[in-house]
């Protein structure tokens, strides 16, 4: 949500990160109910800050952008920044050991920069070259780095220890924020942030409506999402429950009690597990 806005604050965000890291340490005493979220107290206060920032600035600006700028032009802006990003998505794809994805990302960059006229049009998608996922957080995850505790940073939004390090790397290599002189660079960064926030207006409304506790809902969605991007998902291939269960989580086995099959914390989806519970429920 505010991830976009946050990227905009390249320099000052680093300072904020340092301050926030200290605050996080200071907040160590806060005990979260969820083992994946030991800094829940700190995170919730950061979340509240982000919410008010978004309410005051992020959302109004994004809404105005959506109302004022016609849809095709917003598409050009989205495609342009997406194209610039494909360069390092390709690098990360390679680092992750997915050469095919890397080639796809770079082919996208080549086609969109030329035939797509400086990336304003996503002709590659129409050619069947799907946009890939890739960032340093995902790369570290593929290499086996654990997520560490969940963290919420001011303006950055949801993250975890691994993805925080990844984001610093992402910023370091970001072609847009490495562009000089400073004035047009800042304008670009703000435009990108606005465009990205505008694209999320629908999703944030959905979150507003769906969640009982927006903080917890967003946290669990973030953790599930990042996990699925690293593990990859193969809908036609059933994974053994043991390969999906996080360390420390109860393994689903057919003879476990219903209590053991459901963890109150995040638990990856295992259809086999579901079916066992449902069958037990129906048998009553």
């Amino acid at each position: 949500m505010t991830a976009a806005t946050a990227r905009a604050r390249h320099g000052s965000a680093r300072r904020l990160l340092a301050v926030a890291a200290l605050a996080a340490l200071a907040g160590c005493a806060t005990t979260g109910r969820d083992p994946a979220d030991p800094f829940e107290g700190f995170n919730r206060s950061m979340y509240a800050f982000n919410e008010s920032f978004d309410k005051a600035i992020g959302k109004p600006v994004a809404t105005a952008y959506q109302d004022v700028v016609p849809s095709p032009a917003r598409g050009w802006v989205r495609n342009f920044f997406s194209n610039v990003a494909d360069l390092f998505i390709g690098v990360n794809n390679l680092l992750e050991g997915r050469p095919n994805s890397a080639v796809t990302s770079w082919a996208r960059f080549a086609f969109n920069s030329s035939f797509g006229i400086f990336g304003f049009n996503d002709v590659a998608s129409q050619m069947g070259l799907e946009k890939q996922h890739g960032d340093f957080g995902l790369t570290f995850g593929t290499w086996g780095a654990g997520t560490g505790p969940y963290l919420v940073w001011p303006l950055v939004g949801p993250s975890d220890v691994r993805d925080t390090v990844g984001t610093v790397f992402d910023w370091h290599f970001d072609p847009v924020s490495n562009h000089y002189p400073v004035a047009p660079r800042n304008a670009m960064i703000l435009l990108r942030a606005t465009s990205q926030r505008a694209d999320l207006l629908g999703a944030s409304r959905l979150l507003e409506e769906a969640a009982l506790d927006k903080y917890a809902f967003q946290r669990d969605a973030y953790l599930q999402r990042r996990r699925s991007l690293i593990e990859g998902d193969h809908p036609s291939r059933e994974k053994a429950p043991s390969s999906q269960a996080p360390a420390g989580a109860p393994h689903a086995s057919s003879d476990a009690s219903p209590q053991a099959r459901f963890s109150s914390v995040y638990e990856p989806r295992t259809p086999a597990n579901y079916q066992a519970v449902l069958a037990a429920e129906r048998a009553k």
């Binding site: 969640a211 669990d220 599930q224 699925s228 998902d233 459901f262 990856p268």
Partner: peptide
């Protein structure tokens, strides 16, 4: 349909924490 998984996020799993907290 008994679960919808959007972008790797299972709706059912996502509600589980919230519901468990409320019940507690």
């Amino acid at each position: 349909v008994y679960d919808v998984v959007v972008g790797g996020v299972s709706l059912v799993s996502n509600y589980r924490t919230e519901f468990a907290n409320e019940v507690r």
